[in-house]
Write a protein that binds this DNA or RNA. Structure first.
Lengths: 173, 173
DNA sequence: ATTATTTAATTCATCAATGAATTTTTGCAC
DNA sequence: GTGCAAAAATTCATTGATGAATTAAATAAT
């Protein structure tokens, strides 16, 4: 089923609940759901494009950051910061990249706690192959929006992120 | 780390790659990432609010749709349409709701392939407890946006969904 | 110098979700 | 009526991700 169909069905369902219950913020609920589903759909697109190369989005993202890192290498924790991944998952990603011959793993002699992931020649070739391909995909996805709308979207997402951040802070206190 | 910090770090990483590679659409890439992460953060918020009741977002969503269904019951496949879940997962959700005493499961006598999930009194109490609570959470999340901005966001998400839909169609053909 | 704290990475158990294959039932074609 | 395709739900194996606990190394405190 298409996203738009899903949205219609979901709104119908939410409205039925709203009829039973006191004053549900239907529009906000739908916004939240749409945000989630559009984000997920975009991710699914990437996954689809990547699965031909037996990569998952997180792995690809880390490979790219490795490619862009000074010296073509970085530690898992640095990569965590760059890709918003958890350490546990970064271990798995490292395993996957090493297994596929896209990166090597070595312990940093200057700080033996650190692990250094380094992209291989093969990894770099793959990066250079995938980058234009995935870039085109991203461009296609946003091709329906003009410059103004893109800026609008960015502004709105930044604002939402800011709200979420401050509310999380409040909660932690 | 906060979302805004993540965004800054991610943009830095993407820009370093862009410097190495031909004309990367940095802004679009960041839009895609922000969409994904804001959507995920909103979901995480719900999960957090729900985990006190040992529910996960999908389970909650199904419970609500069950609550709003005519006759307080529905089949898994109907619920799949209403909540954008896969049948396999719906089976698990049904299991969870039944196990927690929030719903019952019975086979429809008029079509013995169909299963009828029916919300229990306890499930309904929980629904009536959670709805206002979660609604407040949604409202808080969007409290930073004015009416115009909400409409903008909705328009943009609809447009993106439309683009994603048509491109998926093209691909399937 | 010894001890305690912090940091990096990993292991382990667990979870939600998925696709493929399967079972059962219904509806349709002939 | 028999055979066949479609539909509904499920089972099974697998996957990506997570938190809690663990190990090892570096750093700070005393």
């Amino acid at each position: 089923m298409s996203l738009l169909d899903e949205f219609v069905a979901m709104r119908g369902g939410v409205q039925r609940i709203a009829a039973l219950c006191s004053a549900l913020p239907v529009d906000e609920i739908m916004l939240a759901r749409k945000l989630k589903h559009v984000g997920a759909a975009i991710s699914a697109r990437f996954e689809q494009a990547l699965q031909a190369h037996d990569l998952v989005e997180a792995d690809f993202s880390v490979l790219m950051q490795l490619f862009g890192s000074p010296g073509r290498n970085a530690s898992p924790s640095e990569l965590c910061g760059l890709t918003a991944q958890r350490p546990t998952n970064m271990t798995r990603i490292g395993d996957a990249l090493v297994r596929k011959g896209l990166a090597t793993r070595a312990t940093d002699p200057s700080d033996r706690r650190r692990i250094v992931l380094r992209i291989t020649a093969r990894g770099e070739r793959l990066a250079r192959t995938l980058l234009p391909q995935l870039s085109a995909e991203v461009s296609r996805i946003f091709s329906g929006l003009g410059d103004t709308q893109r800026r609008q979207l960015d502004t709105l997402l930044q604002k939402l992120a800011a709200t979420l951040d401050t509310q999380s802070e409040e909660q932690d206190r």
